[in-house]
């Protein structure tokens, strides 16, 4: 067996930020690491969870605060803002235009590609509760876990990033 097969290298990324540019960076690294043959896990916590939201409203029973949070936070990868030069939403449109011009995959495509490559997407259940996000509102087929799962994976990974 090749060295790669008997011990696959690991990469873990924590996506804490809900900024479009940072999410794009996280997914480019994740896709690159997957192409390197690594087992890749992205943990989504706090604002990063918004990357995983479905773009359509999902009707779930929630308290007032959770409803407000849900309304104020971006609904999915296509609605994220830029960390710099957001210009009330014009910035993200510009960056998407530029990325298209350069033939760079956009964030939804990068997420799709990551899933095709077997990148594990894990939503942090504690922060889901804090922000009032339910499983029904996040994309299907992802995992749910807490800090122990992250540490278990991260302890075996040589590449650990917090974005």
């Amino acid at each position: 067996m090749s060295p790669q097969e008997n011990q696959k290298e690991k990469t873990t990324i924590i996506l804490f930020s809900g900024d479009l540019d940072k999410a794009i960076a996280a997914f480019i690294i994740a896709n690159g690491a997957a192409a390197y043959g690594h087992d890749v896990t992205i943990f989504f916590t706090f604002w990063g969870l918004n990357t995983l939201r479905k773009d359509q409203p999902v009707s779930v029973r929630k308290g007032f605060l959770e409803k407000m949070f849900g309304k104020m936070m971006p609904r999915g990868a296509n609605k994220l803002s830029l960390s710099k030069m957001n210009f009330a939403g014009i910035g993200p449109k510009l960056i998407k235009h530029v990325m298209k011009k350069h033939n760079a995959p956009d964030l939804p495509q990068l997420i799709e590609l990551a899933r095709e490559q077997g990148v594990k997407l894990v939503a942090c259940t504690m922060t889901m509760d804090l922000l009032g996000l339910t499983k029904e509102e996040l994309m299907d087929g992802i995992d749910y876990a807490g800090v122990a799962t992250y540490l278990g994976d991260a302890a075996e990974a040589k590449v650990n990033l917090f974005i």
Binding site: I28, G32, A34, Y36, A104, P105
Partner: peptide, 13 residues
């Protein structure tokens, strides 16, 4: 050709 990072490596893989 014409593809941006990380697509060349991903396609090659």
């Amino acid at each position: 050709k014409g593809l941006a990072c990380p697509m060349p490596i991903v396609k090659a893989k």
